[in-house]
Design a protein around this nucleic acid. Sequence first.
DNA 1: GAAATTGTAACGAACATGCTTACATTTGGG
DNA 2: CCCAAATGTAAGCATGTTCGTTACAATTTC
Lengths: 135, 135
Amino acid sequence: MVNQQFAFALHILAMLAYSGKILDSRTIAASINTNPVVVRRLLLALRRAGLIETSTGKRGGATLTKPPSRITLLDIYDAVAWRPAIAVNRRRAFRACPVSCSMKTIVGRISHETDQAIRRQLGKTTLHRLISEIR
Amino acid sequence: MVNQQFAFALHILAMLAYSGKILDSRTIAASINTNPVVVRRLLLALRRAGLIETSTGKRGGATLTKPPSRITLLDIYDAVAWRPAIAVNRRRAFRACPVSCSMKTIVGRISHETDQAIRRQLGKTTLHRLISEIR
DNA sequence: GAAATTGTAACGAACATGCTTACATTTGGG
DNA sequence: CCCAAATGTAAGCATGTTCGTTACAATTTC
C-alpha cells in the first residue's frame, strides 16, 4: 500500500483505546502529526464501520463503541482499505493469446488468496493487545 | 498496492513458462496490452532476481533460467515489490504522547507480520501450477 | 552492413494521496 | 440567546507514483 490510512486509523483507535475518553480531531491530529481534516475523514470511515461514535458541537469528538478487546485489526483494515493489496490488470485481453485470456482469472484468485492471508493475520490481533505494547 | 507490476510480472513469467521459448518484449507487451518498454523494465528486475536471462540483438529476448516448478510466486513478488503492503507513518512522533511515541514500532511490527503472511501464501504456489490453470 | 533487439534515459499524462482553507451545522454553557 | 467549539464536507492545491511514449546507443544475427 502506498497510502498510510491504515496506519493513521490504527493510531486513531489506539489513542481512543489508550485514553478511554472522548478525543477531538485536533488532539488526535497532533499525535499523528497531520491535519485535523485528515483525521476527521478517517473518523467517518471508522464510524461507518461501527467502531466509533462521534458527536458534533462543543465538547464533541470520538469514542469507541466497544471495548478494545473486541476490536481486531481486521475490523480496522476493513474500515479503511478498499483496494486489495495485489492489483489485477483490468485491460482487455489479447484474444489470440491463451495466457492473456486466462490471466485476469488467475491473478484474481491469487489476489483473493493473498487478501485472505492478510485478513487472517490481522484478525489475530486485538486493539487491546496493540495498546498493551505502549510504553 | 496501487501498481500492477506484480500482475505484469506474473503475466510475463507465465508467457515464458507457457511457451518455453525465447520471447521478445514486443510479443509479451502485446499479450499484456502495454508498451514494450514497460515490459523491458520488468524484465530487468526479473533478471536481477535470477529468474530469467535476456539476450540483446537480433533474435534476442527473454527465457526462464529454471523450470517453472522451481519458481514460486514469492520469488516473483520479491523481484518486483519493494514497498510493504502496509505503510508506516514515518513522521516525527509527538514527544508528549506515549501513543505517538510507540506507534512507529508497533505498526512496524504489524507491517512485518502482515508481510510474512503474504509471503507464506505466495510461497505456496509455483509458476508451474499457475500455468496449469491456463485454458 | 542492415535489421532486430535490449538497455536506458527523459519526459509527460493521469491518478492517488494528503494538506489546507473554508464554511455550514450542531452542541454546550454562560 | 449567543458565543465558542466541534464535526461534516466540499473544493482546490502540491506532491509523488505509475505507466506510457519517444528516442537512441549498444549488441547481436544473418
